[in-house]
Computed example of a mutant assay.
Amino acid sequence: MQVHECVSFILLKDDQVLLEKRAKDKEYDPSLIAIPGGHMELGETQEQALLRELKEELNIVPKSYVHLCSLYHPTGELQLIHYYVANRWEGEILSLEADEVSWHSLNSNPLDIEADKVALAEYRRLKNAGVELG
């Protein structure tokens, strides 16, 4: 099975994470609550995809970011999602592709995708261990 690489961005503000309700017309995971992200394009690096997707999806440019982990997400295709953490950015967050985006508590959130749940749990684990991310 072919692997499709993606990037997702865990945006943090205080003790909240930005999540999206995916558009109902998306081919994969329609209407699910998820960490925002998108597919890497042919020849793109993870960093290039991250910067492009943040601009296309949320109209922002990160001031700093760090890779958190990479996880497989079997949906209609097998995705390898590279998760990044950012807590500083330029621009006003706008929902340009999702039905909506909103802030949720890091400790109680409505994520529907298992890989996203694991990535957020990994962020909390590292944060509780005193590791600086983002």
Rank of each mutant, 00 (worst) to 15 (best):
N87K: 14
S70R: 11
L111R: 01
Y72P: 01
L106A: 12
C69Y: 02
E100V: 11
A34E: 10
L54T: 07
E56C: 04
S102T: 09
H82V: 02
E114D: 10
D112E: 12
E77H: 11
T45H: 02
R52H: 04
V66Q: 14
P30N: 02
E41Q: 02
S105Y: 05
E57W: 05
E44D: 08
Y84S: 11
E47R: 10
Y28W: 06
A119T: 06
V17Y: 05
N87I: 02
D25C: 00
K21F: 00
S31G: 11
A49E: 09
W103E: 09
S105C: 08
L78E: 12
G38L: 14
Q48V: 10
A121N: 12
S102E: 11
L120A: 08
A115E: 05
M40T: 03
L68G: 13
L106Q: 13
M40Y: 00
Y72H: 03
L50N: 08
L78A: 12
Y65K: 00
H39G: 01
S70C: 08
D15S: 11
C69Q: 01
K13C: 09
R124S: 10
R52V: 11
R88M: 04
A119N: 03
H82A: 07
Q16D: 14
V66A: 13
A121C: 03
E97H: 08
L78S: 10
S105N: 10
E53A: 00
N109K: 06
N59I: 00
S108C: 07
V66C: 04
P30H: 06
V61S: 15
N107H: 14
D15I: 03
